[in-house]
Design a protein around this nucleic acid. Structure first.
Lengths: 132, 132
DNA sequence: CTATTTACATAGGAAACCTAGGTGCATAGG
DNA sequence: CCTATGCACCTAGGTTTCCTATGTAAATAG
């Protein structure tokens, strides 16, 4: 019940949400609701997408050809009503777009580090410690 | 005359511009025009602020008490007209705000790495190579 | 003497998020 | 039984934060 970390200011997310969606889909198809939970899980609740933002974003990514969707039919109990959900998967074009965006993110993060300077070394050290 | 690296998509900057301004001022007072050039210099032209964004941003940071400004008078040649420019410096409150924002940035960057996953290892390796 | 650079500023627009609301079915708890 | 919560989709309207375009004015370069 305790929230160890307060949620991250959503302004920082601007411009990156689509990239994160593509990154999640890189590891396999998923429907919108599942993407929301996957991001929360991967970031231990630090980041979470709003449905009101995510669904239009998915439609947009599909419009640009970066993802493709299919309606999956989930059969109800014997004879019962079925439910549907929309499953998205990364296209070839989306895969290329993801690479581009990851490179752009890396360049941007590096630029921030350069400007913020000495405070940055701490970040690097922290990352290295997490990896080795 | 050659541009080695194309400029970074300004959408990625969203939410971070104020932080970068505070970071530059941490290293000493500066006027608006100089801040623009300092950021371009530190990032080797990858990032640059637009004047139409920077000046309102500085006014905003001053309104919030994170920076303070003084009009500096630059004397013209003997007997000539003087010019003025507005020099900003970081306040105590601004220093604290900068720490908060740098921590927020680190948390956000870490969250992005977690979501983008394996592609991230490349990033780390690249950063490490740059440092050692 | 004209163009560029330095240095400040405002106004209006676009992009990308947010909140608030709505639909419908399934399942759990009282 | 029936109400609340969770799953799963969606739209509309608002806010933040950047952008472009434009303007002023003095100094310097060509």
């Amino acid at each position: 019940m305790q929230k160890e970390t307060e949620p991250i200011d959503s302004n920082l997310l601007k411009g990156n949400m689509g990239t994160l969606v593509l990154a999640v889909l890189k590891d396999g198809p998923a429907h919108g609701y599942a993407i929301v939970h996957e991001v929360r899980k991967r970031t231990e609740d630090a980041l979470h997408f709003r449905q009101g933002t995510l669904y239009p974003m998915l439609h947009d990514l599909e419009g640009k050809g970066f993802v493709a969707s299919e309606w999956e039919i989930i059969p109800g109990e014997a004879g019962g009503g079925e439910k549907t959900r929309r499953v998205y998967s990364l296209t070839e074009s989306g895969r290329a777009e993801l690479s581009r965006r990851l490179r752009a993110w890396q360049r941007f993060a590096a630029a921030v580090e350069k400007v913020t300077g000495s405070a940055q070394e701490l970040t690097f050290r922290r990352m290295i410690l997490r990896f080795f």
